[in-house]
Design a protein around this nucleic acid. Structure first.
Lengths: 222, 222
DNA sequence: CGTGATTAGAAACATTTGTTTGAATGTGGC
DNA sequence: GCCACATTCAAACAAATGTTTCTAATCACG
């Protein structure tokens, strides 16, 4: 019988699945420890608190991701020798890095769902943690996108990037439910990579869409 | 001094704000009742349970929305006399209905955040409730979109609609945080209607994007 | 007024939560 | 063997949760 992974890994493996399925507040430490066949106190012993466990779950994905991502951007910049990197290559690179990291554990679904939760769940500590630890990678990416889309006003590019972030996170984090509907209605079993392929022309077209008509300022309350 | 609204309304008003800010599980009935200056037992008395309160919060938005939406689609269909309704008009109509309903209470932000939570938070009872109560409106809309985009394969249109749903819900439900960043970085205070105006060309371009390159592994199997 | 139904209120209920404790067990070095 | 250390474990902790109960107040109306 294959040797069980150690306690810390078992906790992380179980926690990320339960968090992804039910959210942070809805997942108790007893849920995690019982399913992981680990003593309840082990979480506080190894991680210190539930908050720290949540951050550790994220770090296990984001640390290798940012490492790969920075390396890929380094390579991309070197290949273009200081010139402008085309938008499609930037998007392609980001997509590749996002796909590669969880591929090792076949847990892309979990990774995406966690990203979605990081945005949607309150968890102020999580937002702060992610921003402080991994904000630089995102800043670097947006700066490269800026160089690749000089015709876009800064604010417009900012919003469009977040529009597309919404597309990706929303779709991939709700993948299971959507996939069931799609399979049932269209008899087509889609994988994550099918979806990424479908997203590519959509994202590119969205980023290159014409500017909104009237940019005259209009007031609005509330 | 303006007369206080009755207990039921005070509970709903307070609950929707707290739910939108912190999520369902993170908002306790005591949070709600104390802020609403209402007795704790009032929630269970008037609504029956916390789950029922959550559903009531959604119903207060979705009931008038679906009513208006169906009426607007009726009017649109009548105006086109059985002909095809252009995609832009469909999107415009949906956007208008979404904007109109919460406008009465200046709570579009809350409405959008609630929609985002309905997707991201587990709350199986909520998904089921929304699907059963309001699924028909969405079905009707998607059917009209199908007629408006006959060149799109059904599966492709399904996914693109959800891509755009992600764009809208993700952006508008995380509006506060994003708005702060945008204001700080670009000195531009955006309102919800500014965002909708920015989204319009993006959504249209996304729906009209070219098909993904290789659809070679498309199987008919069931 | 008075009577009966409806609503408000304070207190208690049983669970569940994250966390801490202190003893038991295991592990590696000398 | 023996010691120091790290880890596991069962138990208990205080606090918070949704819900229920029962009494008091309020209202509608004959």
């Amino acid at each position: 019988m294959a040797q069980q992974p150690d306690t810390v890994t078992r906790i992380l493996d179980t926690a990320e699945v339960l968090f992804a399925e039910r959210g942070f507040a809805e997942t108790s430490l007893r849920n995690i420890t019982s399913k992981a066949k680990v003593n309840l106190a082990a979480v506080n012993y190894h991680f210190g608190s539930k908050k720290a466990l949540i951050q550790a779950v994220f770090a296990r994905y984001l640390d290798p991701f940012t490492f790969r991502f920075h390396a890929a951007l380094d390579e991309l910049e070197a290949r273009h020798e200081g010139g402008v990197i085309p938008l499609e290559e930037l998007l392609e690179t980001m997509a590749r890095c996002v796909l590669e990291v969880p591929a090792e554990r076949n847990s892309l679904k979990v990774f995406m769902r966690l990203l979605g939760l990081a945005y949607s769940q309150a968890q102020g500590h999580l937002r702060r943690y992610i921003q402080e630890e991994y904000g630089s990678a995102f800043s670097r990416f947006t700066e490269l996108v800026r160089l690749a889309t000089p015709e876009l006003p800064d604010a417009e590019r900012f919003w469009r990037l977040h529009f597309m972030l919404g597309t990706v996170i929303f779709t991939l984090s709700g993948l299971d439910a959507l996939r069931d509907i799609a399979e049932q209605d269209y008899g087509e079993r889609v994988g994550v990579r099918d979806l990424v392929r479908r997203m590519r022309p959509v994202v590119v077209a969205a980023m290159n869409a014409p500017l909104p008509e009237s940019l005259h300022t209009q007031q609005e309350a509330g």
